[in-house]
């Protein structure tokens, strides 16, 4: 190798080694200030969750006092025979809620989640609740089913659950409404 070539190689090596060392060995530990911000953000997250909780409870106390509160949940048990698409809820003949489900929501329901479909107020006395469930049933056919229940609203919060279950006896989905004590 000539001297000039050596110079070139040395020059170029110096140049790229500079970059190599910059890219491969720039072992930058998070600086202390970054750590402080990270801890601060964590602390703020905790506070924001607490505030959100307080506001959630305040909202319910304000808008849906326990004496008149009426809640409807929806759950799917397994969901093998029905791919849930939409739900409508009627209370005393009026549609009070309707929901179209995304794939993510359906998955969450199938994994054991319960959706709070509706929250409102009802007077004490007898009321009628009807749920209309739509989706794709067995053999890829459109499926619609309704379930109705009459229940007595007392002075405590009333909670109902629309249950969509798999019925293994005839491989069909089954919709029912149950009351939570």
């Amino acid at each position: 190798m000539t001297d000039s070539q050596k110079t070139l190689v040395a020059g170029l090596l110096a140049a790229f080694m500079l970059f190599m060392s910059g890219s491969l060995f720039a072992e930058t530990d998070p600086a202390e200030d970054s750590k402080a911000v990270a801890e601060r953000v964590q602390d703020l997250k905790k506070k924001v969750i607490r505030l959100n909780r307080d506001l959630f409870i305040l909202e319910e106390d304000l808008l849906f006092p326990a004496s008149t509160q009426f809640v409807v949940f929806l759950s799917v048990d397994a969901g093998k025979f029905l791919q849930l698409d939409a739900v409508k809820l009627k209370v005393n003949g009026d549609i009070v809620a309707s929901h179209l489900y995304t794939e993510r929501q359906v998955t969450a329901l199938e994994r054991g989640g319960m959706q709070r479909l509706y929250i409102g107020n009802l007077k004490t006395g007898t009321h009628e609740v009807t749920a209309f469930v739509e989706g794709i049933g067995p053999n890829n056919r459109a499926y619609k089913q309704a379930a109705t229940v009459s229940f007595e609203k007392g002075t405590d919060t009333a909670a109902l659950e629309i249950r969509i279950e798999d019925r293994s006896s005839d491989y069909q989905p089954m919709v029912s409404i149950v009351e939570w004590e």
Partner: peptide, 25 residues
Amino acid sequence: ERAKDPAYGWVLYNYHQGEAFEALT
């Protein structure tokens, strides 16, 4: 398998959708 408390079921509903903040609340 089934939530014994609707509050827990609702938490799971949010949790399985990746809504950590809502579920924590």
